[in-house]
């Protein structure tokens, strides 16, 4: 999966919990938790959407790496290449 495809997937997962999401105004390198009104239930549902789309386990301790678009794309790309490494 290319980075562009991963980015699409991450944005779609995020749009599922934040319908007001405006992709153009979202800074990809900054935490979207500061940019969108996302609570812990929304974040859990976002992680579940990523888990279901990619069929990979995501330990809770790795959640901080999923809080920006760029961070999530980098992390998920790495997990897809070597699922056991963090």
């Amino acid at each position: 999966m290319t980075d562009a495809e991963l980015k699409r997937l991450v944005l779609d997962a995020l749009a599922g919990v934040a319908p007001e999401l405006d992709e153009a105004s979202l800074a990809p390198d900054k935490s979207f938790r500061d940019q969108l009104d996302i609570d812990s239930m929304d974040f859990l549902n976002y992680v579940i959407a990523l888990h279901e789309a990619l069929k990979i386990d995501i330990p809770e301790t790795d959640y901080p790496r999923l809080t920006s678009i760029d961070g999530a794309v980098g992390y998920l790309g790495q997990r897809l290449k070597s699922p056991s490494a963090g």
């Binding site: 812990s40 239930m41 859990l44 992680v47 888990h51 279901e52 386990d57 995501i58 330990p59 809770e60």
Partner: peptide, 17 residues
């Protein structure tokens, strides 16, 4: 909770709420 969630697949994890 962290120990419990480490044993659970993503969709079954719990929030402290």
């Amino acid at each position: 909770l962290a120990a419990e969630n480490a044993k659970r697949p993503v969709p079954e994890r719990m929030l402290y709420g």
